[in-house]
Amino acid sequence: MSVYLLCLVLFCVGLYCILRKRNVIKIIVGVVIAEYAVNLFLALVAYRFEGRAPIFSPDQKILNMVDALPQALVLTAIVISLATTALLVGIAMRIYEKYGTFDITKIKELKG
């Protein structure tokens, strides 16, 4: 149980980072941390007590494997988060080019 709670704590660290940090890059890092927390949670959902890696090979019996499906889901989620992160970093670099700063309190022209 404590592992799940730690996972939740990691997620909250990510959210805190997104909400409180002013630096654009730190916000992106926050998004990445939160994404990792969710991926970790998915992998934890798959865990069986004393299970082994779900690899099917000719010389082993299928006994007490952990659930393989969430691991495939984690891979997909990682690919998606890669795309999001790459796009965010690209936007951040362009923002730096235009505004000359990474501070979001100074990047605030849209209001109302």
Binding site: P70, T84, I95, Y99
Partner: peptide, 28 residues
């Protein structure tokens, strides 16, 4: 890729990613 578009896109991307994370957490 003008100033306002980038700013809006960044805000949108961050908030929307957080929303997706909640969805993924719910699905998990």
């Amino acid at each position: 890729t003008e100033r306002h578009e980038l700013e809006a896109a960044f805000k949108y991307a961050v908030m929307s990613s957080v929303g997706s994370l909640f969805v993924l957490l719910g699905i998990a």
